[in-house]
Design a protein around this nucleic acid. Sequence first.
DNA 1: CTCTCCCT
Length: 830
Amino acid sequence: MPEHQPVAWDKHSTQKMTYTPKIITANGVINGPTTPLNRTPSRASGSETQGSRQNKSRSPNGSINNKTQHASPNLGQRRSRTAYMQSDEEDELSSQPNSQSPKKERKMNGAALPNGGKDELKRSKEEDIRSHRMQLPIYDGKGAIVNAVRENDTVVVLGETGSGKTTQLPQYLFDEGLAKDGMIAITQPRRVAAVTIAARVSVEQGTSLGEQVGYSVRFQERTSRFTKIKFCTDGMLVRELLLDPYLEKYSIVIIDEAHERTLRTDMLLGSLKRIQQERKAGERRSKDGKKLDQLKVVIMSATMDAERFSKFFGGCPILYVSGRQHPVAIMHAEEPVEDFIFGCKRVFLQILTNEPPGDILMFLPGQDDIESMMKTTRDMITQLPPNLAKVLSLPLYGALPPEQQRKIFDPAPEGFRKVVFATNIAETSITIPGIRYVVDTGLCKERSYHTGHGGSGLDELLIKPISKSSARQRAGRAGRLGAGTCFRLYTADTYEALPEAPIPEIQRCDLNAAILDLKVLGEDPLTFDYIDRPLDDAIRASLMTLYALQALNAQGHLTPLGRKMSSFPLEPSLSLVVISSKARACTSEILDIVSLLTCTAKLFVDTGDTREVAADARKKFRHRDGDHLTLLNVFRSYEDVVSANTSTGTNINADARTANVKTNGPSTYAGNRRAVRQWCFTHFLNEKALNEALTIRTQLRNNCEREGIDWKVSCGDDLEPVLKCLLDGLFRKSALKAADGTYRQIGMQQVLKIHPSSSLVDRKPAAIIFDELLVTTAVYARGVSVIHSSWLVDTPLFNSKKDEPVTHANGQKGAIRKNNHANGTNGNTI
DNA sequence: CTCTCCCT
């Protein structure tokens, strides 16, 4: 089939965004009927085509109660644009570099103006804010929400995109005095969101950031003793929970984006339920003897799983708030599309030739698909007539350096179309302005964790169909600017067969850290009240792992070592590496390595065409004993370059410090930044990763100091202790080479290969350890280092304990199956 | 012979 053959669209199935809420609230619907005007009934009840429906009932503002829209459509249009920029949901606020940073805002507030105009300006600004807030769809539901929270311990709020729930609800509760003497915490899955929403809300409250309204995320906190409304990441609140198991500081906890079901959100939901049971009726007293009021919980979700949350919290009321979103026409393919890359090319041409101007966003599963689309569209464009060839194509994926990511925010040149090829990152984390067309392959890469193999797990990263809620979310990305269209490269029947929501993270990841946290909280991981239970096998596997790491004793009780491990912001095995670096006298080296290992930004960023040049440029860092020591070399070289280019005395954090910002970050240099940047560039290193590693290292050094570990202790040039130390924590991720050149993981005999990105891929040493086992096209070990096979004898793998691990649930019931010592961990298989 | 995304 030729590329210019258009994809046939299933006219009959063409439908509008999105779902019809079936939920009838306990208190009645807040903001109009359950089916607002901007939603059509599902396909079953109407077969209207795109055109007929679109022209009929759509208003840009969606909400039925919108007053501006009837009075003046133009005004409505303009206002909705403003709403998009200022207050839509957190993603808009957070991910656009142009959105106001806290700093900018301060500047603007204090802008020098003629004295006379100042008050007036302030007044009109306040008026703007007030009228803006009153126009948000959630405003009409304020009374109902406040009442519901006043009368119930727990309330679920089902709020659509653009309803204003995230910014407004905390303020409503605060303004009405529902927080009493306590604080309100609002959790977000992502750091940027917490920071930017806090900035916005503090402006709306008319106070400066860090006073009444603050935030707390890793590496950055801005709060004071006056702070009453605190935005934080869900991970941060879990951290607080470990120190304060009843969350005594708080009178209200709001879990936002609960539908995303992050591991930490799920941990919080279970814990909040327990806290409510214990704080109920004032039976619980705080540490200083005061009576603790009941903890109010508000769960905010954007999808239909609201009922699930309600059920979990004893059938609490669900309130529904409609959103503000432009209509999106949804086109399904008539026939299944077999080759999605080919399908994407065809739709791309189709849009270029048939559709009015507007930018395009394509959802692809991974980096290599994006690269191949970039290449093929470049080729295609050269063959198009010049009027159609005005296309600016851009990639967008997580590993892309930020300066390249930022390019998607620039408008395309006059007369050009922008087309962005993106992974899932464009689904929730980054909102691209100005998109009118979405092309949805219906695919994503999903990580799943296979516990089997007696505990040490196997990650799988495979292309999978998305869920209905993801499909709706992707389509919604076409409706930010105005009416849009979403082309789905799958049939309507395929859509109907998709699962409603993705599998919650807690059911598809390694639980070691989460289970350790539960143990610190004194919970029994086997009987904890999960909203969705992980498999018992997964829980037991983690208990076994924690036992092997000596975080738990044979009775399954938390050991002092385990408590120490939980205090590090690391997964338990890496915590153990850090702790054992004390005895091996190589903490300095280990912190460098662990910092780089755990930073989210990728240190090495390669695309197809630069891969070889980059590998060549980095050759000088390569250490013959593998990837961990190579990382150490990179880090040391980087620090040399930085100190060679540092002018003393200046400090870019000075600014932040005078502004009373608490940062855990390192004092960064203000010397010759450009030289450092150039060095990173010529060596194909991501400077952001190195900066992040510096910040992490500072945090880890503080942790070490607290735990009595001297982080300055270095092993010098003899790096053997470093490798042994890594083995102390990673011993379950070790493998020996077999005769055929592949490896067998020790204990479980899993066959694996060294990942091609590893420096050891050609060397193939006899015994290795690795950070991660990932199944993609094969079973690959990533982050690999050489060890001596004799070292393995000293690991717990080969020290069959006399006290068999009976990792009970709190020593009572649910005894754990024996681990698979018989399967090789006794050492007799080598 | 190659890496969805986020969090302490």
